[in-house]
Design a protein around this nucleic acid. Structure first.
Lengths: 131, 131
DNA sequence: AGCCCTATCTATAAGCT
DNA sequence: TAGCTTATAGATAGGGC
């Protein structure tokens, strides 16, 4: 982007990587806010540094007074959207929404269809789990 | 940014707003991916258009093979981080993590402190709810 | 670890299809 | 409504504190 063009791959030098992280992280959050304001849409961004530190942005509405509330609202909507998608095309993904409270399992095994849906989930399903 | 400088406020013209949304949305998702790769960090972006259409990006790991899984992983981590924050400073927020399975209610009413925590949640709490 | 500087690269507003 | 073009605004790599 600037004094020299760079290739998009992991920056090996730790100091440079940290410096770039600082700059680009702030740039990303700014862009997210601009998008939300300019286009009047809901935007959520979550970033975890390699040390586990959290940076976030969530566009707010009249009913969301804090970042956490705004984020919660968007994540709620995201979960709903994922459910819709799952219902429309149940076999497209073995697992969705690993962190949500809703679970749908639909799979074809040995020529017979087995299905299960429960809320709240009793057990997390993974792609390697035997059904 | 270009032929003319613009102010960051809602674009009133619907056609222009849609066009800008299309461009900036793709720009944001690209920047998110670049940040994740360059700096080797976890990044999640969720965007909902005004019509409710979902656009997303989630940096993947060796254990996340789909976008949904990658997103789930990051949202899981986000929820954990929010819990940590809440435990460190319980009164800082009335509600956190509205879409998660953990709930903490701590509030001061009429001079007396009332607290409650339950999992899984029996009822969603809002900022206007009587405790 | 975070700023400043600034040359350079990238994103994108307008306009047109 | 999604692309294409181009001039210009914005982001940022490298370098120095």
């Amino acid at each position: 982007m600037t004094r020299r063009k760079i290739v998009i791959r992991r920056i090996e030098n730790m100091g440079k990587r940290q410096a770039t992280f600082c700059k680009r992280r702030s740039g990303l959050l700014k862009k997210a806010q601009e998008l939300a304001i300019l286009c009047d849409v809901q935007v959520a961004v979550i970033v975890f540094s390699s040390t586990g530190r959290l940076y976030e942005y969530a566009s707010s509405t009249t009913t969301t007074t804090t970042t956490s509330m705004a984020m919660a609202s968007i994540l709620q909507k995201y979960r709903s959207a994922q459910e819709q998608q799952q219902l429309l095309n149940p076999v497209s993904q073995l697992m969705i929404n690993g962190d949500a409270g809703y679970w749908f399992q639909l799979s074809v095994l040995n020529g017979s269809t087995k299905g299960a849906a429960c809320y709240p989930p009793r057990q997390r399903m993974t792609s390697t789990m035997e059904l």
